[in-house]
Design a protein around this nucleic acid. Structure first.
Length: 149
DNA sequence: GCCAACGTTGGC
DNA sequence: GCCAACGTTGGC
């Protein structure tokens, strides 16, 4: 069972907000590499929920993938921030998945702690200049991050 | 708000 | 197919 990490700005969706929702649609991904990872996800996969662009960037908890990927409806909504003029219902370039809540950590694991873990050296999150918002996490990396939670 | 680093676009 | 210009990401 693959593990993942996905970034969200808590103003848009936080782990606390997800906790009170039946499910949420993870949409708005507009990067091909990240999209391809969405397409590789399977129901039941777990992911670390990362809070980005906020006062305390870091991993805030765990979520679960509930659906296989499907065409991202926001790409077709002309009033959406994520509207893509090059996508049509017949040929939507972008994908979304539905996610559910699993766990909220007592405290956010700060990015600085993640960077200090040698087991995470290959994780895109901690690589200089990387902006990837959806990425795979190896089982070893998953376990070592859990020890920080 | 700054800015380094990156991905995408489009002229040639 | 190259690459300059541009827009975006995201930590600080």
């Amino acid at each position: 069972m693959p593990y993942w990490l996905m970034k969200s700005e808590p103003d848009e969706l936080s782990i606390e907000a997800l906790q009170h929702m039946e499910r949420a649609r993870w949409d708005g991904v507009r990067n091909y590499q990240a999209r391809n990872y969405l397409r590789a996800m399977k129901p039941g996969d777990l992911f670390f929920f990362y809070h980005s662009s906020c006062p305390q960037p870091g991993i805030a908890g765990i979520g679960k993938i509930l659906t296989a990927s499907y065409p991202d409806p926001t790409a077709l909504e002309s009033d959406s921030h994520y509207f893509d003029i090059n996508s049509t219902s017949a040929n939507n370039r972008w994908s979304a998945v539905d996610v559910g809540f699993v766990d909220a950590f007592p405290a956010v694991i700060p990015l600085s702690h993640l960077k200090a873990l040698p087991q995470l050296a290959e994780l895109a999150l901690v690589k200089k200049g990387s902006r990837l918002s959806v990425m795979p996490v190896s089982p070893v990396a998953w376990q070592s991050i859990l020890t920080l939670a």
